[in-house]
Design a protein around this nucleic acid. Structure first.
Length: 483
RNA sequence: CGCGGGGUGGAGAAGUGGCAUCUCGCCUGGCUCAUAACCAGGAGAUCGUGGGUUCAAGUCCCACCCCCGCAACCA
């Protein structure tokens, strides 16, 4: 029995979750369930990043104290997990004590020479209360407030990323730190080879209004939010106290896996491993990077107002259809698109007319031609190794295509063998043989779907395992197409 | 000379050297067990453009055109 530790990124909670994070949750959940069903000991972690300065700003706008604000928002992310039937074992909030202590421990564990003080000078917009890089400015003006930012200088701590350039390149090239897909790996290597600059890892207490994790031994500074946020992956395992879980799932484990979105790959593939190297802590072994979801072909943005609320989506269509869409329609390696039209198409062709209808027709035939009983035959051998291969490659879409092909197989065979005629002609033996065969295939379809659409999987298995099989009610009723 | 991704039948996608695949739509036929579902056949693609390598290229190489992201302290 091998172990498998898997995490999602922890989103910052300045707004309620959108469909992009739902994708990440569902993908990670599917991988976690897949490994559990293969008898691995799995620990699946998700949570929320609550120390960002942006949260303080969002709280002010909402007229709430930061602590209350992040608690409310964090709740929304937790609820999303419930709504999507996510099987996480733990949920960490970076305002928790175990995290704060762990983040400080990690900071202190870093080599002394790697964290140093330096004056940081940047373009600071008073309106936004944040620094901008030259490239972010539009004609030298803040893109938000259209005013010229002030040149501000303050002392911060910096992390000596340049110390780890060669080591990081070697780790990624050798595959010791595996980055999936290949294209992202190349992107990271190209970035490293261009030369790594040190980055600041703290902010002044004044600017953050005291929000955040304090820098050990320096009351005037709090940690830069990324330094603290990244450490959640080990602080949740009780790194602070060197707990059992940390020993079991981080130190003595071959699979330490992060699932993230493409926008934050640099932090996870470069900053985070460098921090761990400095602190003498083992690195993650794999980082899987998914793409972004566009909506009707457009980038999701609040100003466009095209955000899709995953909770609403589930309320309208149900958990499993949403999970199915995210896993089947969105290519795991690249950007994918969500649109109502595509959703309905996928729903009808694969779930209603495919799986649901086929289950109805087969169960109905078993009920009416053989009184609900299936003469047990040998299990039909299906090519399950293709699914295993797809899952090893993180190709959820391919895995599901393979499973759904079995449903099509049954439909084709029913058509060809015309069981309703066999029934009229009382060819019971032939009929029973066929019914048993289809029963076996659909049962395996049901079982195979467990990591992807768990509730549906359970239903299918239950229906087919009944003492006396009755005609299945539509699993996925056809939906009104509204125009 | 910044980096990366993409350009495949009407639409959306799969496909990294060997008869161009799937879903939707369209046409014709079949079936009646099933959720107006299912099955078979068909029309429809110069696989962005131009070169090259090869017995063989959507797939490898070169050049170019178009679209989309990213460009360090920002999910």
């Amino acid at each position: 029995m091998s172990k498998f530790f898997v995490t999602t990124a922890i989103p910052y909670v300045n707004a309620k979750p959108h469909i992009g994070f739902a994708l990440e949750l569902v993908q990670t959940d599917t991988v976690a369930r897949w490994h559990r069903s293969n008898n691995n000991e799995v620990w699946f972690l998700t949570g929320t990043d609550e120390n960002a300065l942006k949260n303080v700003q969002a709280a002010e706008q909402a007229g709430q104290a930061p602590a209350d604000f992040v608690t409310d928002m964090s709740q929304k992310f937790k609820q999303l997990g419930g709504v999507l039937n996510i099987s996480n074992d733990d949920f960490i909030r970076t305002t928790e004590d175990r995290h704060v202590r762990g983040a400080k421990k990690l900071w202190s564990a870093c080599k002394g020479e790697d964290i140093y003080r330096k004056a940081y000078t940047g373009q600071y917009c008073v309106g936004c209360e944040q620094f901008y890089t030259e490239s972010e400015l539009v004609n030298g003006l803040c893109p938000e407030h259209k005013i010229r930012p002030e040149q501000v200088s303050e002392e911060n701590y910096f992390f000596k990323l340049s110390n780890y350039q060669i080591k990081l390149e070697q780790l990624i090239t050798s595959g010791e730190l595996r980055i999936i897909p290949e294209s992202r790996k190349n992107e990271m290597l190209a970035f490293i080879r261009r030369g790594l600059e040190d980055f600041s890892v703290s902010r002044s207490v004044e600017r953050t209004k005291g929000w955040g994790v304090g820098v050990p031994g320096d009351d005037s500074q709090v940690m830069y939010v990324w330094f603290d946020a990244l450490s959640n992956y080990i602080t949740a395992l009780d790194y602070a106290d060197n707990g059992d879980r940390y020993q079991q799932f981080w130190l003595n484990n071959q699979r330490r896996v992060h699932v993230i979105g493409k926008g934050i790959s640099r932090f996870h593939c470069i900053y985070w491993p460098a921090m761990l190297l400095s602190a003498g802590v083992p690195l993650p072994t794999e980082i899987f990077i998914h793409g972004y979801i566009t909506v009707e072909g457009e980038k999701i943005s609040k100003s466009l107002g095209n955000t899709v609320d995953p909770v609403e989506l589930v309320e309208r269509y149900g958990t499993d259809p949403v999970r199915y869409y995210l896993l089947r329609e969105i290519s795991a390696y690249e950007d994918g698109d969500y649109s109502e039209e595509k959703f309905l198409q996928r729903y009808h062709s694969d779930l209603a007319n495919g799986l649901g209808n086929t289950l109805s027709r087969v169960t109905n035939m078993i009920a009416s031609y053989s009184e609900g009983r299936v003469v047990k035959q040998n299990k039909v051998e299906l090519a399950v190794e293709q699914i295993a291969k797809a899952m090893a490659d993180w190709r959820f879409d391919v895995a599901l295509t393979n499973i759904m092909a079995w449903v099509k197989l049954v439909d084709g065979e029913v058509e060809q063998t015309k069981p309703w005629q066999l029934a009229k002609e009382s060819q019971t033996e032939e009929l029973n043989k066929l019914l048993s065969r289809w029963h076996s295939i659909l049962l395996q379809v049901g079982e195979s779907l467990a990591p992807f659409i768990p509730a549906t999987s359970q239903k299918v298995v239950a229906i087919l395992s009944a003492e006396k099989i009755t005609k299945a009610e539509p699993l996925f009723p056809r939906l009104e197409i509204k125009n």
